[in-house]
Amino acid sequence: MEPGLRIARRLSLTLSLILGGCAALPPGMLSTAPLQFQHGKLVDAPEGLPAAAHVVGVPFFPDDSHYCGPASLASALVFSGVQIAPQQLIAQVFTPGLEGSLQFDLLGAARRAGRIPIVLPFRLGVLFAQVAAGYPAVVLQKVGFGARDWHYAVLVEYDLPADRVTLRSSTARDLQLSIEQFDRSWAAGGRWAFITIQPGQFPPDIAEPRYLHAVAPLEGVAPETAHAAYEAALRHWPASWIAMMGLGNLAYARKDYPRAAIHFAQAARLQPQDGDPMNNLAQALLAAGDWKAAQGAIDVALRLGKPHPEVYRSTAAQIAKARAAALSESAAP
């Protein structure tokens, strides 16, 4: 294929994925992915999933224009205890030139509101499990054949025997679709969905790595939330050395180096064969002005030698520099 043609094709393919104006058409049948609900049964259902569940009290913000992103996010955030209106989210998530809201921007806005957005594994069973545990989920759907017929809605109910899901969607408070209809519309966007949680909540089928992966990006924009979430994680998974590293990195970022050093040392105790906690311990001690103790810590990291030896060597070089500076200072009259 000619390069120009290839680019044009790629362009049109990409443009076809523009998130558009929250169209209120019935779900399309675009997806070629195998359905996860076949012959009245859920494929790969999590163990113990109830046959039906309904999250009550999920607020509804009707929208008949392009604001399904802000409306759906507001619905999830308000349910999660944040006082916010869709109008307040428009500036953070809506891109006027695209007449729609981008997925990353929804996640970013949730973080800025002090909630933890968790992108779910791409499985219908896991999505339903969230509803069963009381978490409404924001879902991305393809709702027509047009290039711009992308739509966000909030899943609040599923009922396997009745073959039905219920969504807060555009102007419908309780939009009901068959499970197959819904799965087709959802599969077209890669089965993308997220829930928003508070520290201390542990949704089903979200293992420690996915939880921490969701929490870590909050360190910069919502450090208090990240702190509470790491502490909760340590109560839930007492051996979570990465959560301990998170507490250390938060302390380091607010320049509380002694506190950071304590957390890094605790992380090192939980994960003694890994050089990373000792490297960060050395950094915290160095920042606190104790290059001698820092030297001891980085020696251990260098001896362990993994998984980031080049970083340890770089830290060691920093310590050597600080040491040389300190010695030349004390040698001066």
Partner: peptide
């Protein structure tokens, strides 16, 4: 102003990546 950790400190996000690229 963004949360960009210094290169010599192992960031938490880096630790939570399954395919851990370096800082």
């Amino acid at each position: 102003a963004a949360p960009a950790a210094r290169a010599e400190l192992i960031g938490t996000q880096q630790l939570t990546e399954s395919t851990a690229p370096d800082s």
